[in-house]
Design a protein around this nucleic acid. Structure first.
Length: 610
RNA sequence: GGGGUGUUAGUUAAGCUGGUUAUAACGCCGGCCUGUCACGCCGGAGGCCACGGGUUCGAGUCCCGUACACCCCGCCA
């Protein structure tokens, strides 16, 4: 008798048989998705990554075939040879193969399965912890299979698009030299150089610039990066970037390539036509209106900065605002207006305050505006001067019934609190969905945005110095370059972030290729020449050998995949993700190693006291 | 480093102000059933209530601690 696999090769996937195939004999391999045993006939839904096909073992089948049929259970891996039969009027409209079924002529069990800890269904309630422990079973579920197949498509379209634009796919090392600053690195002890360590690359940044120096002109790489920082819903310690670098370009040239790539991805993966070019917003506007550099511009509800206004009115009689009489550096006061239509209850506003406190706020001052423009339900209602109240009503455009939320204090805190409140309100008021696009097929659901021209430096209050807001190799804008020595805080740079629906999906810059400007930037940063040489000597030296003007970007592949598939979490688009503590629940990494291994690596491990 | 939420059969949950035999659904096992596709019907098994302390005559329930998971702040491109 013909044997499966040796003689009987798979003829179709479980998702492709239709009425056209009726009458043909087929061989299917897959997993038992479901069984409906009627005593006589037994129905099996057979599953592979293509879909589901109903297989029928009829009553009049041979004894052997029947006993196989009765033995089948969830997730048995089986092979079936059978005939495609029309279901006639008994079609199952939920299945792509619902017009037909396969009547088994021969079947084999390749492998039985233990009872799975959870059912392999599209929607399950099982705790993620459990799913991660049995990730290989979780990955059998259709939504995850779809997501990873889509991710494969993402890779393929990226390669073909960039190849078409003349980019070379080149690799860079993962084991690199540790350089302080920026993200914390994973360290790898060197066995051959006692007491020394490699770092796992947090990005191919310096190497891709060296490709430009070497004359490769246009480089890209779909590359793993490693960062030893705390995890979030959209942050994993190892993640994938689409890394791009180009020579002889300015910002617009990089944007054109990225827009071509991204619209191509959305076109080929989702069939959505995204309009080009993407809108641009200065960093300063983004901070002013949204309190961060990755605004979700699918809805308005902008922040209103009241710092100057409250200052003019010397606090306007409000005790906690009195200090704003004279402007204090780094302290701001901002408001958010919740429209009357929200009709928030006391419980709702208490919830808002709770969220604010969770972000480091001391509280959340609020005021409800009535018909006359007076404030009610507010601790400030009695003390505030009518002039300031009126001015704030005007600045916020508050109408009767609107609720005003105030936050004041350190700029970073105010921005964090109000930016997160704004997103919470956007979801609560139904202006944006909880996650993902409103309608994947609607271009309006995808709001791409370039955030441009951020400051080159950030003032570090601890060290009282200016530090590069990003990395030290970003070129200042031509207009603000002269301020480098006189007013470094005002120097902007040709750095850009690509934002989609409130997620930062990419960031890059035009690099500093001119050693003369480079040393001026280091000087402004207070970095000694010697220190710079120690950290980045090889790059600085390379730049002195006729480095071309160049720039690039890195796109977060995982985030693209997450947004493209409407997933809630990065973990849903990474085959084998880490938990929030960076562990792998399936393999139990990281784990302890033997003393002998440590010795070989010249490493001593100190276990924390328990 | 900080704040919050959670942990009860294989899975998901219920279990109120503490009260003696800890429920349900799905899954599992056995039996019956030719047309189901969330198949149906009958029966059954299955629990150290995360762990460690405490309060109490008595703790799944109250208190403290620990672990693990998740969300957020800090951190991070």
């Amino acid at each position: 008798m013909a044997e499966f696999i040796r003689d009987l090769k798979r003829t179709h996937s479980c998702g492709e048989l239709t009425a056209k195939d009726v009458g043909s004999e087929v061989v299917l391999f897959g997993w038992v998705h479901n069984r409906r045993d009627h005593g006589g006939a037994v129905f099996i839904d057979l599953r592979d990554r293509g879909g589901l096909t109903q297989v029928v073992f009829e009553e009049q089948a041979s004894h052997d075939l029947q006993s196989v049929a009765h033995e089948l259970r969830y997730e048995f891996c089986i092979g079936v040879r059978g005939k495609v039969i029309s279901r006639g009027s008994n079609v199952n409209p939920k299945l792509s193969t619902g017009e037909i079924e396969v009547h088994a002529l021969q079947a084999t069990i390749f492998n039985r399965s233990e009872t799975p800890p959870f059912l392999i269904e599209d929607k399950i309630d099982t705790a993620e912890e459990k799913r991660l422990h049995y990730r290989y079973l979780d990955l059998r579920r259709a939504p995850l299979q779809k997501t990873l197949m889509r991710r494969s498509k993402l890779n393929q379209v990226t390669r073909s698009t960039l190849d078409g634009l003349g980019f070379l796919e080149l690799e860079t090392p993962y084991l690199v030299k540790y350089t302080p600053g920026g993200a914390r690195n994973f360290l790898v002890p060197s066995r051959l150089s006692a007491g020394k360590f490699y770092a796992l690359a947090e990005s191919p940044q310096l190497f891709k610039q060296l490709f430009m120096v070497a004359g490769f002109d246009r480089y890209f790489q779909i590359v793993k990066c490693f960062r030893d920082e705390d995890l979030r819903l959209d942050r994993q310690p190892e993640f994938t970037q689409i890394d791009i670098e180009m020579s002889f370009v300015e910002q617009d040239d990089v944007f054109a390539v990225v827009e071509e790539l991204v619209t191509n991805l959305w076109g080929k993966v989702l069939g959505v036509k995204i309009p080009k070019p993407f809108p641009r917003m200065p960093f300063a506007d983004s901070m002013r209106d949204y309190g961060n550099d990755k605004p979700d511009v699918r809805f308005e509800m902008k922040h209103v900065d009241l710092t100057a206004l409250v200052g003019e009115h010397k606090g306007g009689g409000v005790g906690m605002w009195a200090s704003f009489g004279e402007h204090k550096a780094g302290q701001i006061i901002k408001a958010l207006k919740v429209p009357a239509s929200a009709a928030f209850s006391r419980t709702d506003t208490d919830k808002l305050e709770e969220i604010a406190k969770g972000m480091g706020a001391k509280g959340l001052a609020r005021a409800k505006v009535d018909e006359q423009g007076n404030w009610t339900q507010s601790p400030m209602a009695k003390s505030i001067t009518p002039e300031l109240r009126q001015a704030i009503n005007q600045a916020t455009g508050a109408q009767a019934g609107d609720l005003l939320l105030f936050q004041f204090g350190k700029e970073a805190m105010v921005h964090t609190v109000l930016a997160n409140l704004r997103l919470f309100l956007g979801k609560k008021l139904g202006l944006i969905p909880d996650h993902g696009p409103a309608k994947a097929e609607d271009p309006e659901s995808w709001k791409f945005l370039w955030v441009v021209d951020p400051p080159l430096f950030e003032y570090d209050e601890d060290t009282k110095t200016y530090a590069a807001a990003h990395h030290a190799f970003t070129r200042p804008t031509d207009e603000t370059l002269p301020l480098l020595e006189t007013d470094p805080a005002k120097v902007l740079c040709t750095r850009y972030d690509l934002v989609l629906n409130g997620f930062e999906i990419g960031g890059g810059s035009i690099r500093l290729h001119d050693p003369a400007v480079q040393s001026r930037v280091f000087a402004a940063m207070g970095i000694e020449k010697k220190e710079a040489e120690e950290k980045f000597g090889f790059l600085l030296q390379a730049l002195r050998f006729g480095a071309p003007p160049h720039g690039g970007i890195a796109l977060g592949m995982d985030r693209l995949a997450m947004l493209l598939s409407g997933a809630e979490s990065l973990r849903d688009v990474i085959p084998f993700p880490k938990t929030q503590k960076g562990t792998d629940l399936m393999t139990d990494a990281p784990n302890e190693v033997s003393e002998a291994q440590l010795k070989e690596l010249h490493v001593a491990s100190v276990k924390p006291a328990t």
